[in-house]
Each structure stands twice: as structure tokens, then as C-alpha cells.
Design a protein around this nucleic acid. Structure first.
Length: 626
DNA sequence: CTAGGGTTAG
């Protein structure tokens, strides 16, 4: 074949001529504009009109099949490629390999590579196959191709790196990633912007935030994508404050944010409860026409939901023209988070009716909403439907939801039977859910078993030690408390203070236990004094001094209490008082908040790690352990 | 062949 002999499309005048035929010009245009479905139907009309495709028609059409993940159309095209006899053309070869990879058929891609002897000489073919292995998380295959291309004397370039580096984005392969980084520095391909950006992402995804940051700091010129890599890396690692800080730095260094930046910033606002900052981001979104970006909309939903503004979250959701599965998930989760399970379940039905196939994540939202609202049987029914109707394989996160579902309902025995009957081995979350149930239902015996198991899986998770210690406290088991304390000391836990946040006038105010650094410290402590003496007055004549032992201790330095005092101090009359607290579970502060809500004549809202608790007159609207 | 993105219980 004349085309194959030259080995390059551009240098071959015959192929160059192909590029300018009307069909091919149009095919290329459509592919560039991401109009993939249109490009495939154009290819079909071309065949119908009697024109035959050539080495220039295939790559663009194959690219469309890859983008839409249409393996059947791709295979048909492969057949046509063979009929026309241009399978040796590099451009066609790489498009075929890439198409099969993007459809998840890596073995077929490999066959194309192996059946064409010239591929082992062509860098682009190695690049296509390596990035395909990476995308399908076939680490060892990607690595062996990488080795093979070096053995064959084919030079590695930056595109090879871009295809290979992301395979190391899991902690297990960080070592490999580091050696690649070293290799790039030695071979001088590290000067390439894109390669460095991909290394930043790799470090961040492995949780090696410091390494990613160091690389970022060392880069003399930082582009938009460089900033985004480090900002989204911080966001994915839960460093929300740092995200906001970097976002400010980015703007002041003259780089303007794009939708990718704003998505991470919004997500961080959601975690911090920073509604005002989130609203400013929304203004930027509107001013720049990013509203049509579904990633941005989904992040906005989650931001408003987690800031307590359900109406706005729903407003954003309603105007998304084509809702993605993630949009539905975020909105359903939002109702669950606010205790409106029925609305959430209705929305779930709407989603099914609109033809969106549920995934494991939506089921996590729905199941956890059911368990928090005491809809045990509904939850179990949904778990069953998940397997039987939707053919989804439950993961450990679903099993732990079911244990939570049964456990919260007081069906601790059934929960244990369920764990024994699980087809997969229980993990930390499963035992943790059982431990949580024991806390609610004061089951010390099962708690000790669950605790023993849970710390095998997660020995460094302080939360479980605190939980076990609280269970012993409830049963007045002084020896148990002491035992847990010794374990904590042996494992070297420092008494890390939990912190609470309150957003006020566009600023997030962070409080640590015993904190005196806040500019309103004096007023906050004065308010705390006032609240506490009012609380003490009512504790005498209420039912809170019963078996639950709901008596306030004098550990008044806790972050929740400081945050509550600050929120009451600065709250605007007529509005809800919102306090966001962090993970740390403190019984004493629960009691305090309950009591304060009796004094304050407004709705008092507390957001813990994942949901909202609405208090009025000392009663919480949800059926949770509050 | 090609660097950065949304949802997720305890």
C-alpha cells in the first residue's frame, strides 16, 4: 500500500489530497466541534452516497465512536478500514487503538497493535495504548508497554508521560510515580508544562499534598491548569481553607478562574458552610456564562444544600436543562441531609421515571436518608431493589448503610446476623455503623465486639475511640473509659481539638477548644456566660436531668460552645441561627445546644459532619440521637 | 496519542 509505505499522512501528497475532499473537510469540522453523533451520521450518508472512505475519513469518525463509547460502530469502522486497506496508516492505527480503549475493549486495542508490525516502531501507537491501559487502570500492562517501547529504542515524549503518569494516581503506585518524575527530570522532558501539571495531580491524588505543593511552588511560570491542579488537589484532600486561600492568590497573581477552578472553590464553600463566598462565586459564574456547565451547577446545588439554603439549591437544580446523575444525587442527598426524606424519595422516583439509571452513590444517599429518619423497612426494600431491579452490586458502603439502618432502629441482633451473612468481608465502616448503633441503644457488650473489630481496620481513627469512651461513660464504666484512654495514649493521639465554624458576613469564623484568638473573644465569652447561666436556671425544672444524665459539665471551652455563643451574639433577628460543627462528637455540647434552643426564640440549626439538625424549644426535628 | 472538574454514608 502506497499510503503505508510513507508512514506519514502529512508527507504523502495522495493523502493530503484526501484531506481536502468535501466529505473529509466536513467530518473534521464536526469532530473539532465535538459534534460526535453528527459526524457518525455524516459518515453513514457518505457511504450511502457511494463515496468510499479513505485514510483521512476514519480517524475523525473513530474519534466520535470513542467519545460516545460506541464499540459496535467502532468495530464496523474497523471492518471498513481493513476493506479499504489503510490499517497500516499511523493516524488510522492510533485512532483504532484509542477507540477500542475508550470503549473499554483494551484487549482489542492490543490486538490492533500486535497485528500491525509497524506499530512497535511508532511512538504514537505506544502512546495510544499506554494511555488506554492507564484509563482502564491496567497498571502492569501500561508499565510493560512503557518498558517495551524503551527497549525497542522508541523515544518517550511528553505525550507518553501524559498518558502514563495518571496510572500512578493511587497511593500504592506513588513510588512508581516518583521514579517517573525523577526520570523526567533526568531526561529533560520535565520542562514541559503539561507534564509537570500531570505530576502535581498525581501527587495530590495520592494524598501527597506537600509534594504536589512543592512542585507547584518550584514552577517558575504557573498557568491556569497549574493553579487548577493544585486547587482541586487541595479540595479533594479536604483542605477547604487552603482552597479559598489559593483561589485568592491565583486571582491576585492575574490568572482568571474558569469553570474548573470555580467547581473546586464551590465544593470547598460547601464543606465550610461559606454561603456568602459561594454566592460571590455564583456571580462570577453568571457574569461569565458558565451557568450552562453542569459541573458548576452540581457544585452550586451542593454548596447551597450544605449551607442550609434548600430553596436556592432546588432553584439551581430546576433550571439545569439536562440533569446528570450527579445532579440528581446531589439534590436527593440534599433532602436527606435536611431530614426531608419523603421529598428525597419522590425525587428518586422522578429520576427513575426520567430514564436515568441509578448508581451506587444515589443508593448511599437514599439508604442513609432512610436510616436517619427511621424508615427502616423502606430502606431495606430499596437495598433489595438495588440488587434485584437495578442489578447493582452493593459495595461495603451499602452494607454499612444497612447495618446503620437496622442498628439505629434498635435491631442490633439482626444487624449482627446481617454482617455474618454478607458475601464480602465487613470493613471498618460496617463495624463502625454497628458501634454507632450500640451508642444509641446502650449495648455495651456488642459495642466491645464492634470496637475490637473496627480498630483492626482503622486503628488511627480517633472518632471510634471517642465513641467507645462515650459508651462507657453512659454505662458509668470507669474502668472501660480508662482502658480506651490508655489505648489512645499508646497510639500517640494528641488531644486534637475539634473545631466549629460559623459563617458571618462573608467570613468563616473558626473556633478551637479554648480558643482566645478571635477578635470578639471577650464578647463571645461574655455571651457564653449569659447563655450558661440561663441554661443552668432551666435545667433544674426540666426533664433533662433524668437517666440520660443530661447535665452540663463545666467544660465550657469546647469549640461548639464558643461557636454557638458567637452565632447567638451576631445573629440577625428574624433569621435562623446556623452553627456548623465538625466531626468531633461531644455529648456535653449536644446538651448545651438543646438547652440554648430553649432560650433562643428562633429556630436554631446545627450542621454536624453531614446533616442539619433543626432545634426549637429544646427539641430536634430529626429522629437522630440528638 | 495529550495536563485540571461535580455527588458519597460513619
Amino acid at each position: 500500500m502506497a499510503v503505508a509505505a510513507t508512514g506519514s499522512l502529512v508527507r504523502n501528497s495522495a493523502v493530503a489530497a484526501m484531506a481536502s475532499t468535501p466529505w473529509n473537510v466536513r467530518l473534521r469540522e464536526l469532530a473539532y466541534q465535538s459534534l460526535f453523533a453528527e459526524s457518525i451520521s455524516l459518515y453513514r450518508s457518505m457511504l450511502r452516497s457511494g463515496s468510499s472512505p479513505d485514510a483521512f475519513s476514519f480517524p475523525f469518525t473513530l474519534k466520535s465512536c470513542a467519545a460516545l463509547s460506541l464499540p459496535v460502530s467502532g468495530q464496523q469502522l474497523h471492518g471498513n478500514v481493513i476493506r479499504v486497506g489503510c490499517e497500516a496508516e499511523p493516524f488510522v492505527l492510533t485512532s483504532l487503538i484509542s477507540m477500542y480503549c475508550k470503549c473499554g475493549l483494551v484487549e482489542d486495542a492490543r490486538k490492533v497493535f500486535d497485528e500491525n508490525p509497524q506499530s512497535s516502531q511508532l511512538r504514537v501507537c505506544y502512546n495510544a495504548l499506554i494511555s488506554g491501559y492507564t484509563a482502564n487502570s491496567k497498571v502492569s500492562d501500561a508499565a510493560s508497554m512503557f518498558r517495551r517501547m524503551k527497549e525497542m529504542g522508541v523515544n518517550v515524549d511528553s505525550v507518553t508521560m501524559l498518558g502514563f503518569v495518571p496510572v500512578c494516581s493511587v497511593p500504592d503506585y506513588l513510588r512508581l510515580g516518583k521514579s517517573l518524575h525523577g526520570q523526567c527530570v533526568r531526561e529533560g522532558i520535565d520542562s514541559e508544562f503539561s507534564v509537570l501539571n500531570s505530576f502535581i495531580t498525581m501527587y495530590m491524588k495520592c494524598g501527597s499534598v506537600e509534594s504536589g505543593r512543592r512542585l507547584f511552588d518550584e514552577m517558575p511560570v504557573k498557568g491556569l491548569i497549574t493553579w487548577n491542579a493544585v486547587i482541586s488537589g487541595y479540595s479533594q484532600n479536604g483542605l477547604a481553607h487552603e482552597v479559598l486561600e489559593l483561589y485568592e492568590k491565583m486571582k491576585s497573581s492575574g490568572v482568571y478562574p474558569d469553570p474548573v477552578t470555580l467547581v473546586s472553590v464551590l465544593s470547598s464553600c460547601a464543606h465550610l458552610g461559606a454561603q456568602r463566598i459561594g454566592q460571590e462565586v455564583e456571580k462570577i459564574v453568571e457574569a461569565n456564562g458558565f451557568v450552562s456547565n453542569v459541573f458548576v451547577s452540581n457544585a452550586l446545588i451542593s454548596m447551597y444544600a450544605r449551607c442550609g439554603n434548600l430553596a436556592k439549591a432546588r432553584g439551581v437544580f430546576d433550571v439545569i436543562p439536562v440533569k446528570s446523575l450527579v445532579s440528581w444525587t446531589a439534590m436527593i442527598g440534599c433532602y436527606g441531609m435536611h431530614g426531608l426524606v419523603e421529598t428525597g424519595l419522590e425525587l428518586f422516583d422522578d429520576m427513575i421515571r426520567s430514564g436515568v439509571r441509578p448508581d451506587g452513590t444515589v443508593f448511599v444517599m437514599v439508604l442513609s436518608a432512610c436510616s436517619h429518619s427511621g424508615m427502616t423497612d423502606k430502606g431495606l426494600e430499596l437495598f433489595d431493589a438495588m440488587k434485584r431491579v437495578y442489578k447493582l452490586e452493593p459495595g461495603p458502603e451499602h452494607y454499612s448503610c444497612v447495618v446503620d439502618l437496622l442498628g439505629r432502629a434498635g435491631r442490633v441482633g439482626e444487624a449482627m446476623e446481617f454482617i455474618e451473612s454478607m458475601p464480602v468481608e465487613a470493613d471498618g465502616a460496617v463495624w463502625g455503623a454497628l458501634l454507632g448503633a450500640c451508642k444509641i441503644h446502650r449495648n455495651v457488650g456488642v459495642a466491645e465486639l464492634a470496637f475490637k473489630k473496627v480498630i483492626e481496620f482503622e486503628p488511627m481513627n480517633v472518632g471510634y475511640y471517642v465513641l467507645m469512651s462515650n459508651i462507657y461513660t453512659d454505662s458509668r464504666n470507669q474502668e472501660g473509659i480508662w482502658r480506651v484512654r490508655v489505648m489512645m495514649r499508646e497510639r500517640g493521639f494528641r488531644k486534637e481539638p475539634g473545631y466549629s465554624y460559623v459563617e458571618h458576613e462573608g467570613r468563616v469564623h473558626l473556633f478551637l477548644a479554648g480558643d482566645r484568638s478571635h477578635e470578639q473573644t471577650e464578647e463571645v465569652y461574655r455571651m457564653l456566660d449569659e447563655l450558661e447561666s440561663s441554661v443552668m436556671e432551666i435545667t433544674g425544672d426540666t426533664d433533662c436531668d433524668r437517666d440520660g444524665g443530661e447535665v452540663l459539665s463545666s467544660r465550657r471551652e469546647h469549640s461548639e460552645r464558643l461557636a454557638v455563643a458567637f452565632a447567638v451574639l451576631n445573629s440577625v433577628p428574624g433569621t435562623e441561627i446556623l452553627v456548623i460543627k465538625n466531626l468531633r462528637v461531644c455529648e456535653d455540647c449536644h446538651v448545651f445546644i438543646k438547652m440554648v434552643s430553649k432560650i433562643v426564640d428562633r429556630r436554631f440549626v446545627v450542621r454536624d459532619a453531614s446533616r442539619f439538625h433543626y432545634f426549637k424549644d429544646g427539641v430536634c426535628s430529626c429522629k437522630d440521637y440528638w
